[in-house]
Simulated scan of single mutants.
Amino acid sequence: MNFVVTGGAGFIGSHIVDALIDSGHRVHVVDNLTTGRRENVNPKAIFHLIDITGDQLGAVFEQAKPDMVIHHAAQIDVQTSMERPLLDAKVNILGTLALLEQCREHKVRKLIYASSAAVYGPPEYLGADEGHPLRPISFYGISKQTPEHYIEIFSHLFGIDYTILRYANVYGIRQDPKGEGGVVSVFVDQLLQGQQTVIFGDGEQTRDFIYVKDIVSANLAAVERGSKGIYNISWNKQTSVNNLLKLMSELCGKPFAPRYMPPRAGDIIHSRLDNTAAKEQLGWEPRVTLRSGLRETIEYYSRLYGSNSSCPPQ
Rank of each mutant, 00 (worst) to 15 (best):
E39M: 07
A59L: 11
V91H: 08
L49V: 03
K44D: 12
F47D: 03
A89V: 01
N40P: 00
F61R: 00
Q75S: 10
E39Y: 05
E62T: 15
A98L: 14
E39T: 04
I70W: 04
I76W: 09
Q56D: 09
V91W: 11
A64N: 05
A59D: 11
A89Y: 09
V78F: 05
N42W: 01
A73M: 10
E62C: 14
L100C: 07
G54H: 11
L87T: 15
A45N: 08
I76C: 11
A59E: 11
L57V: 07
R37K: 15
K44L: 14
P66S: 01
A45F: 05
F47K: 00
E62V: 15
P85H: 10
R37E: 15
L49Q: 00
R84T: 04
H72I: 04
L49D: 03
V41G: 00
A98H: 15
T35W: 10
L57M: 07
V91T: 13
N42H: 11
E101P: 00
Q63A: 12
H72Q: 12
D77K: 13
A89H: 09
N42Q: 04
N92A: 04
A64R: 00
M68C: 13
L99I: 11
P85F: 06
I50C: 02
D77A: 13
N42E: 06
E62K: 15
